[in-house]
Computed example of a mutant assay.
Amino acid sequence: MRSLTANVGRKNNSSENIFQDTNIRRILISRPNQRLGNLLLITPLLQEIAAVYPQCKIDLFVKGGVAPQIFRNYDTIDTIIELPKKPFKEPFRYLKSWLKIRTTSYDLAINVDKVSSSGRLSVRFSRARFKLFGDSLNESIGLMYFDFKHIAKAPVYNFRFAGLQENIFDKSDKVPYLDLKLDHSEILNGRKILQALVPENTKVISLFTYATGSKCHSVEWWEEFYEKVRLHFLDYTIIEILPVENISQIGSKALTYYSRDIREIGSVIANTSVFIGADSGIMHLASASKIPVIGLFNVTNPLKYSPYNHNSLGIETADNNIENIIEVLETILRYRLRT
């Protein structure tokens, strides 16, 4: 499918002069993917679009049922068009979702991931005056930004340089951080849940030891890491955030927290001092909850998937031993949290 759709929109010229049009009122953003992390990673683009077109309404073309939870507090979002996870089991719902983007008139349609076949096709299929397929960045523009390959930042850079309107934005403008937009009541609820596990005012390190497939570090690695962190930071309590599979790579030696509510998990993490976990959707959820995050990478590329917010970074565990990671953690806890 990628080879068949690679050239869809390549000769499209409808993106020209997009920022000179002040009548952009309805926008379609296409990210037909059901993974938690991939959906959270479009929150910088949503913020960027809202800043440029504050009066616009956005429809999201996604997959699965998690999007309404993630984007609950995004006022600019109007309709979430959800493809079923298994289209052959729900063919009529699948076709209805595609017809929705065809029967709605949009001023602008944006494909988030340029290698997404469904994303490219959905933008091509839409009735939009302007269409962005994710190919705005050419090599010379990409060289201006060391981080343009990051999966959360590339769509923003693509949007900024659509139609080659380089002068619209200051090149020093920072890409917005991931943001779950937790409200005050959600933060308070997360604090209440945390206080049921540890005494009030306890400093907490949140740990997530699971990841899918080869991204998951071994039980032996995690057990050694946990013991060294526990002994090095005796003034902190470690709480393990359990995945939906309810699996612990450290044999539940730490206090554990389990929930299937995405926003509740985020609110609990938001009340901890730092999050440590392998490359996963929960890692990006922690980033979107606005606390420092250390992402542990053993197969995926941190240049593309690193946690993205203030005081966060990705570490390749093949190139850094546990002592190196602890030094980074100590720097975050002792110094960066004071700034």
Rank of each mutant, 00 (worst) to 15 (best):
K63A: 04
I294F: 11
Y106Q: 00
S172R: 12
N7F: 14
E139P: 00
F297M: 06
L132G: 12
R160H: 09
G9H: 05
S259N: 06
R263E: 13
N138E: 13
V229L: 11
S15M: 02
Q20V: 00
I24H: 08
I42P: 02
A154K: 15
P199Y: 04
T76H: 03
L36C: 10
G142Y: 01
K96H: 14
Y308F: 15
E330G: 13
H217N: 10
P199Q: 06
F169N: 09
D147P: 01
S280D: 08
V123Q: 03
N320L: 02
L60M: 11
N33G: 04
W222M: 07
P307D: 09
L178I: 08
P302Y: 13
D107F: 05
R25C: 10
A211W: 08
T22S: 06
N138C: 10
F233S: 00
E200R: 12
F133N: 02
K253A: 06
K57M: 11
L178C: 07
A270H: 14
D78S: 14
Q69C: 05
K174V: 07
K192Q: 14
K181Y: 06
T331C: 04
L83Q: 14
S136G: 07
M1H: 11
V66K: 11
L28P: 08
A6N: 12
V52I: 10
F71K: 08
Y177K: 03
G163P: 07
D78R: 13
N13R: 11
W98R: 04
K57V: 05
L255G: 04
W221I: 05
Q249S: 09
E245A: 12
S185Y: 13
N201T: 06
F208S: 02
D147V: 01
R93S: 15
G266T: 10
T331Y: 08
A254R: 10
S140R: 13
Y257W: 13
D135Y: 12
I322L: 11
T79F: 03
N271I: 03
G134P: 07
K100W: 02
L207K: 01
I241Y: 12
